[in-house]
Structure formats: C-alpha cells, structure tokens
C-alpha cells in the first residue's frame, strides 16, 4: 500500500494533464478528420451556391480577413499609443490608476456586451448601419485592452538604460521612444498584436448585430456593406440552416479553415517570440 500511494497521487495530476491534452486532441482530430475531405481549392475560392448546400466559402474568408484588418487598424495604433502613455509618461496619480482599472475591466467585459455597444454607438448612434466598418470598430474596441496590456508588458521589458542612451545625446523623449524604445520592443508588441488578432478573427458575438450577414452575393466587401465571416458562417451552417445534416460537411470544412487561420496567426506570433528569444 505504501508503494502504491505515491503512484496514485502522481497519477491524479497526470490524469488532469492528460484530460487537457485529450480535449485538444479530440478537437483537432475531429475537425481535421472530418473537415479535410471538404477542403479543396474550389472550396476556398468559390461562392456558396444552391442555398448554401454546395459551393465554397470565399466571401466568408474575405470577410474575416477584411474584418481582422480593420480591427488591427483600430486597435493597434490606439492601443500602442495608450500603452506608451502608461509606461513612458504617466505618473502614479489617481487618473493613471483609473485608466489602468478601466483597461482591466474592459478586458473582462463579455464580448456580447461589446456587440451591444457597437450596435448602440456605431450602427445606430453614428448611423453607420450594419456594416463592415461598424463590426470592425466594435472588434477593434474589444481587442484594445489586450493590445494595451501586451504592448505595455513589452515596453516594460526595455531597460531604462536604453531610453537614457538616447536622451543623453539630446534626443527628446518622443524621439527616444520612436527611434530606440519601440524598435527594441517590436518583437514583443508584434507577438501580442498577432495573438490578439487571432482571437478577434474567431469572435462571433460582437459582430452578430453590427454587420455580419448569412449570405451576400458580392464577395468584395465594402466598408458600408454587410459581410460574411468564417465563425458566423460556421454558426449558421451548424444551427440555423434548414438542411443541417446535409450541410454538415460544409460546416466541418468551414470549421477547419477557421481553425487553420487562427492557428497560422498563432504560429506567426510564436515564431516572432521564438526568434527574438534566440537573438538575445
């Protein structure tokens, strides 16, 4: 019995870890084994046809790419600027503490509430309608706290001596940030930004009421038009379609493409991080 106890104890922890790995394996195995047969060049390059029961998902891919780009355009400059303010300029005042508390709380706000905010502010308030730009702005706001938090972390890792080197030869504070601090922090910032965008690319709830559509016949999206997106397409095919069983292969194919897009973005981030850690 005495010999067995450590084995049981150790086994408990191993079981927990094994379960976590098991979840990932099931997810990947199921999506790949059942999604792969649906994947073809035609699937990713053609329009849906015959009431979505045939054809491809090109407009959804384009929509997701455009949406993610707008998200980046909104959240990256805004987020980096705010992170620079907090890490490089802000003193420890009540206002700074309020900004930091706001960021942490924004990161915890459920994504569906961002959807409501986008609906109230962009779609209705600013009269942008349900459109690519409304949805992009909404997702941009959702991504903002993550961009700020990861950028600030990257800036914090830059030693004070790097800033002082630039200041000591007569650079202004902005010049030292622009020419020395930001370039040094770039790999860290990039990693955070790409991870954030991969999250945004898979988000569905915030775009439900702000611009996503089940079907559009024009694959080239415009800012003021509704658009299709991969996660929403998957949601519709798996729950709302009138012939759910018939379109299941399409749903699997969409899920696989979505997860490939997200993982590719993640891999990019890990590659940047890995390469940077090797350089140091």
């Amino acid at each position: 019995m005495k010999k067995l106890t450590p084995l049981i104890e150790w086994g408990t922890l191993l079981f927990c870890t094994g379960m976590v790995c098991f979840f990932l394996v099931v997810i990947l195995w199921d999506l790949i084994s059942k999604g792969a047969p649906s994947l073809s060049w035609e699937f990713v390059t053609s329009l849906p046809s015959e009431g979505m029961t045939k054809g491809g998902i090109l407009p959804a891919i384009i929509g997701t790419v455009l949406l993610t780009m707008i998200t980046a355009l909104v959240s990256v400059p805004f987020g980096i600027s705010c992170a620079i303010y907090l890490n490089e300029y802000a003193k420890d005042t009540w206002l700074t503490r309020l900004i930091r508390a706001s960021i942490r709380n924004l990161a915890g706000v459920p994504s569906i509430i961002y959807g409501l905010f986008g609906l109230a502010l962009f779609v209705q308030g600013l009269q942008m309608g349900t459109s690519l730009i409304s949805a992009g702005l909404t997702l941009g706001l959702l991504s903002l706290p993550y961009v700020i938090i990861t950028t600030e972390e990257a800036l914090r890792r830059i030693p004070a001596s790097t800033r002082e080197a630039a200041l000591a030869i007569g650079a202004t504070q902005f010049e030292s940030i622009r020419d020395v601090v930001l370039p040094s922090a770039l790999p860290g910032i990039l990693t955070g930004v790409v991870l954030t965008l991969s999250r945004a690319a898979g988000e569905t709830a915030p775009i439900l009421f702000t611009g996503v559509a089940f079907y559009i016949n024009n694959p080239t999206g415009f800012l003021n038009q509704e658009f299709m997106s991969l996660p929403y397409h998957l949601y519709m095919l798996s729950t709302q379609h009138q012939a759910i069983e018939e379109v299941r292969p399409l749903a699997y194919g969409t899920a696989l493409v979505l997860i490939i897009v997200v993982f590719l973005l993640n891999l990019t981030a890990f590659y940047v991080r890995y390469k940077h850690s090797k350089d140091e």
Binding site: C21, I27, D30, L31, A205, P231, L234, V262, F270
Partner: peptide, 24 residues
Amino acid sequence: ILKPVIEMLAAVPSVAIGFLGIVI
C-alpha cells in the same frame, strides 16, 4: 510540449467549440 498545448487550446474559437458540442 505542454505549454503550446494549453496555448493552442486557448486559441480555439468559441464557435468551433460550440460546433463540437453539437456534433460530438
């Protein structure tokens, strides 16, 4: 090995997890 597994699990979009809830 385990850290990337956890990071990958975190990266799976919620809609894909919901989909697996329906099909598996």
